[in-house]
């Protein structure tokens, strides 16, 4: 049976892994190759690299980072942040990425999902959806621009649409849960599972190992992603996996 995947996310700025709170007070965490190798050692199943500045110039730096990481670290690599065209996808895939993740660009230009899937295969195209629960309309809204702008789109409907366009995987971040360390937004993933047939990655809210067992036991998500708890060494991937094994969740 397939193992549930644990995915550390690395925020990259100017060729270095950085970490801040809400993109301010960025702190240098280290060299991407060293950090990726450390996560491989800990038993991470996949890595997501997020280009947090995402200017044209930075994209070249990011491609170089991926080139270097993929020469030393042998697991699936996903690149997101500022990918707006087929050429951007091509650049990252050629550099050694296995998948690219589209977020705002998918909302602005949904055809890009289909074009990417046709050219590179659905397995290469991840659509990232940032969402929060809108109390007034009682729906999950799709947020863009790093969670700063509410599109008013219904995230559940949007998940259906991007799947139809050819997204091979969905990375769903709960902006409500993100940064709280109170655990994943279980209701969100249960709702998503009703409409999603492709692999689903849960993101946002991790504070402790039990948050991972909860999301895998209460929902059908395939993977859990976290950034800060891993970066700041509050948790290691092997700790998470040891806990999941105890809880009879299949992990690698």
């Amino acid at each position: 049976m397939l193992a549930k995947r644990i995915i550390p996310c690395l925020d990259v700025d100017d060729g270095r892994v950085k970490k801040g709170i809400n993109f301010v007070n960025l702190r240098d965490v280290g060299d991407p190759v060293e950090i990726a190798a450390m996560y491989q050692e800990q038993g991470a199943d996949e890595l997501v690299f997020l280009d947090i500045t995402a200017t044209n110039e930075q994209r070249k730096t990011m491609a170089d980072v991926i080139e270097r990481v993929s020469s030393q670290v042998f697991m699936p690599l996903t690149v997101g942040g500022g990918i707006r065209s087929i050429e951007d996808m091509q650049t990252m895939l050629r550099a050694g990425a296995d998948k690219v993740s589209l977020n705002s660009a998918a909302v602005n230009n949904p055809a890009l999902i289909q074009q990417g899937a046709e050219k590179f295969g659905s397995q290469c195209i991840v659509v990232a959806i940032d969402t929060w629960w809108n109390e007034e309309t009682e729906q999950y809204d799709v947020m863009v621009k790093g969670g700063r702008e509410d599109t008013g789109l219904n995230a559940i409907q949007w998940a259906k649409v991007v799947q139809k366009l050819g997204a091979g995987e969905l990375l769903i971040t709960s902006m409500d849960a993100d940064g709280t360390k109170n655990g994943f937004d279980i209701a969100l993933y249960q709702a998503m599972d009703e409409v999603v047939d492709v692999p689903l990655i849960a993101s946002g809210g991790v504070g402790k190992v039990e948050d991972f067992s909860e999301v895998f036991q209460e929902t059908n998500v395939d993977a859990g992603l976290a950034a800060s708890v891993f970066h700041f060494r509050e948790l290691t991937v092997d700790q998470v996996k040891a806990h999941l094994r105890e809880q009879k969740v299949v992990v690698r």
Partner: peptide, 9 residues
């Protein structure tokens, strides 16, 4: 799910 995507033993 099909495709089978991920780690299997």
């Amino acid at each position: 799910k099909v495709p089978e995507m991920g780690w299997n033993q």
